[in-house]
Nucleic acid binder design. Structure first.
Lengths: 248, 248
DNA sequence: CGCAGTTTTGAGGAACTTCAAGTATAGTGG
DNA sequence: CCACTATACTTGAAGTTCCTCAAAACTGCG
């Protein structure tokens, strides 16, 4: 395993793909320099666990590339995904020792990390970091609440449509493609991971995806490559109002 | 209706019951004075709507006493509660125009409010406020994720037990009573509100409460007054590990 | 007392899960 | 290059949970 080696600054912050979306987004050049001094990169392979729930977490960081998940597990094994971490998303919580969740890389992941103590100290001196972190946390809270509606009140078909529309939208904004007309993207999650996100079984996920395909809402090439011919149709299936709220 | 009148400082911040838990918790005396200058109180009656989803929100504030709920509603009327606001909880989001949710007072509520603009300006000059708000938002995010597990993976009985244990715990910490042995509290929610919280129907809520009563997990006097003879038993029923995570 | 709102209880049905095969796809080693 | 295996996915049938619809009981209040 080529795992988890610390790499010192493979690139400059100024050229970083998440420079203007991550926790450092509001930083001025001088603030960025101080961050740069304490940052390091870590690589995780697909399937690798970044941190286990309850483990001591001595770092925080941002996803630079790849996708990771946040999950909770009950004693009897039932698991619920509670967060989907895309590039620029923040991992860890200042002012807390352990991780409250399992964090798992679902694709190969590069993370920009800071040891927690130095980061916390820097945060106290740098309001721009704290401000941005607050903003990002509020966005995540909104997303979590949106997801509570999905989990609590939508049926299986609507849940799948909701997940697809979120992935499609985030993929589109990440790649700066328009969010209208036909959309094409790859599912970054297995059927099981989708089930864990949606509070369903993987069989139900499979059946509903088949049904959406049968009804022409989506097309599939292979198991993961999805084409959405009409995004507003997908939104309807998700039970959302036609316009759709914005996602950061 | 004795509604919604603005009251100027009926009491001093130093004597405020939420002085050390609300967004002002970290403020020094001088910072508190500046907050005090711009604060005002608002009263809401049980059942009254504080703000509608989508409406412009020109204030933020803290619940001083009483209980309010945050809910989302789909076009066809399905509703999901996404937050339960107890004393010291914060309402509103700096840097956003409209409210994303309906906020409704379920009991009589007193709120300590600030007009948004002055509050935002003060926040920029007062790191203690921003720090505390970040801390509270992170706590809320944890609570939301905990709730996602409840909504996605627990059955009806476990959902009810989870809700009861949360209310019992928060009531106990609020009133500084020990969280062990027998607990007594009043349900601040109707069956319908509980259903909206848990993603169930009110009939299922009623049936499961009856079942928990039949099995001796809880005792009821009237419809709302609950006694929990053995809290660890309730936690078991909720499907949580025996110790139980801490809630702020 | 009688009405309105809340809650309980019952019967039947729909949605989703569980259990069980069966199919595809990619990687591995002969 | 191809059988062999592991993993991911699909599909079917039966079972369970929860919802829907309906009616009745309880509570507080004019």
């Amino acid at each position: 395993m080529l795992q988890d080696e610390k790499v010192k600054s493979p690139h400059e912050c100024e050229e970083c793909p998440i420079r203007h979306r991550a926790v450092c987004a509001r930083c001025e050049t001088d603030e960025l320099e101080r961050l740069e001094e304490i940052k390091y990169y870590r690589n995780f392979e697909a399937g690798q666990t970044v941190i286990w729930s309850g483990d001591k977490m001595d770092f925080v960081g941002s996803v630079v590339s790849g996708i990771a998940t946040l999950t909770q597990t009950m004693e009897d094994g039932r698991t619920q995904m509670v967060g989907l971490l895309l590039p620029s998303d923040f991992v860890g919580r200042p002012g807390r020792e352990g991780s409250a969740y399992d964090v798992v890389a679902t694709t190969d992941v590069v993370m920009c990390c800071f040891r927690k103590k130095p980061f916390e100290q820097l945060m106290e001196r740098t309001p721009h970091i704290a401000q941005r972190l607050l903003e990002m946390t509020l966005d995540e809270l909104d997303a979590a609440r949106e997801w509570m509606l999905v989990l609590g009140r939508k049926n299986a078909r609507e849940k799948i449509a909701s997940l697809l529309s979120i992935i499609a939208r985030r993929d589109a904004t990440l790649n700066l493609r328009p969010t209208e007309g036909a959309l094409v993207f790859d599912l970054p999650l297995t059927r099981e991971a989708m089930a864990d996100y949606l509070g369903l079984t993987l069989e139900t996920v499979s059946r509903q995806i088949s049904a959406l395909k049968r009804d022409g809402v989506i097309h599939l090439e292979g198991k993961r490559h999805v084409t959405v011919p009409d995004f507003s149709r997908l939104m309807e299936e998700a039970g959302d109002d036609s316009d759709g709220g914005m996602f950061a």
